[in-house]
Deep mutational scan, measured.
Amino acid sequence: DLSGKLIIKAQLGEDIRRIPIHNEDITYDELVLMMQRVFRGKLLSNDEVTIKYKDEDGDLITIFDSSDLSFAIQCSRILKLTLFVNG
């Protein structure tokens, strides 16, 4: 049953990962930690990372904090994230 699940599709460069999320109350910090685990070796804990999501118009919107993240989650059951490393 995928109805209650949130799917995160995260892209870093050419690498795209699909991550099912069971807890929608994820904070921004938890998201960043999850991305560091998912992209281990490509995304380091001291990297400056910018996370953006695609909205319904196809625009890339920056996620700065947990309220941005929860808004993005409300918009779509499949959250398409693009990561930019400013390392």
Rank of each mutant, 00 (worst) to 15 (best):
K5M: 08
Q11E: 14
I16V: 13
L43W: 09
L33M: 09
I61D: 02
L31D: 00
G87N: 11
L2E: 03
F64L: 09
L81S: 01
S45N: 07
F71L: 14
G41S: 08
L12M: 08
G41L: 06
L2P: 05
I26T: 04
F84H: 11
R17N: 05
F84D: 12
D57L: 14
E56R: 14
D65S: 12
E30T: 08
D1Y: 08
N86G: 13
I78S: 10
T27R: 04
H22K: 12
K42M: 05
L69W: 03
V38C: 09
L31A: 01
E14I: 11
E24F: 11
D59A: 15
H22F: 11
K52T: 12
S3K: 12
L12T: 00
E30P: 00
E24T: 09
V32R: 06
L79C: 08
L43R: 03
K52H: 09
I7Q: 04
D1H: 03
L60V: 12
M35P: 00
E30Y: 05
D25V: 08
I51W: 00
S67D: 07
Y53L: 04
V38Q: 14
S76K: 13
I26K: 00
I61K: 15
V85H: 11
R18H: 15
I61G: 04
T82N: 12
L31M: 09
I21P: 02
K52S: 12
L81W: 00
R17C: 11
K42G: 05
I51L: 06
Q74H: 11
Y28P: 01
F64V: 06
I78F: 14
Q36A: 09
Y28F: 08
G41Q: 05
S76G: 10
I19V: 11
I7K: 04
L2D: 03
K80I: 13
P20K: 11
Q11R: 11
I19E: 03
S45Q: 11
E24I: 09
N86M: 04
I8V: 11
L83N: 00
F71K: 15
M35R: 01
I19F: 04
T62R: 14
I73P: 00
L69T: 01
Q36F: 11
Y53Q: 04
S3L: 04
L31N: 01
F39D: 03
L79H: 08
L44K: 13
Y28D: 01
L31K: 01
